[in-house]
């Protein structure tokens, strides 16, 4: 933990400006959205006040964050058991994971969870650096088919079978 000193050239965490902008936009949207609400007769409070408070607070916080950032405030990422903050962020891996999650989202109702789930597991493992693709596919299939049956039999929640309709 290094205290920022006066001699140091102020490091500016540019990404925090983006965060402040997003927060401000959310706050403004909250305010605009609240303005469009109708307050009924005989309702002294109405549905507007709370969003007004929240939206205003958000805008103020966004401004404070921007000021703090300009003064050299730097975000300290969250640490954890498996987190190594000394290395730069690995955006390739994150991108791969998001792509796989989105693929699952697009395909799940078409081909069914039993298939996309297996692909999801194997794909994520691959993206995270696993080299044992065959084993991951096997494990993923066991998990996805197993969870399908668990929900169907155990919890009475039938997940759409997709193209495996009639086989499962």
């Amino acid at each position: 933990m290094n205290e920022p000193t006066v001699e140091q050239a102020p490091r500016v965490d540019r990404a925090q400006y983006v965060l402040a902008a997003v927060l401000a936009a959310v706050g403004v949207y909250t305010l605009v959205d609240a303005r469009g609400l109708n307050v009924g007769f005989g309702d002294p409070v109405g549905p507007r006040i709370f969003p007004y408070v929240v939206g205003t607070g958000m805008v103020v916080l966004a401004a404070l964050l921007a000021v703090a950032t300009a003064r050299g405030d730097v975000a300290q990422g969250e640490e954890g058991e498996d987190v190594d903050l000394t290395s730069p962020a690995d955006w390739v891996t994150v991108g791969k994971l998001v792509a796989i999650l989105v693929l699952n989202l697009l395909l799940v109702n078409v081909v069914g969870w039993a298939i996309t789930g297996a692909l999801l597991f194997a794909g994520c493992a691959w993206a995270l650096g696993s080299r044992t693709l065959v084993r991951d596919l096997l494990v993923g299939t066991v998990l996805s088919v197993g969870s399908w049956y668990f929900f169907y039999v155990g919890l009475d929640v039938p997940l759409p079978p997709g193209i495996l309709d009639g086989i499962l």
């Binding site: 799940v108 999801l120 597991f121 994520c124 494990v139 996805s144």
Partner: peptide, 21 residues
């Protein structure tokens, strides 16, 4: 770790999907 986090993402997606299919 690859299999561990793949499993977490798997169960997370399953959980969200199972809410309403």
């Amino acid at each position: 770790r690859p299999q561990l986090y793949a499993g977490i993402l798997f169960f997370a997606s399953l959980g969200a999907y199972a809410v309403d299919q």
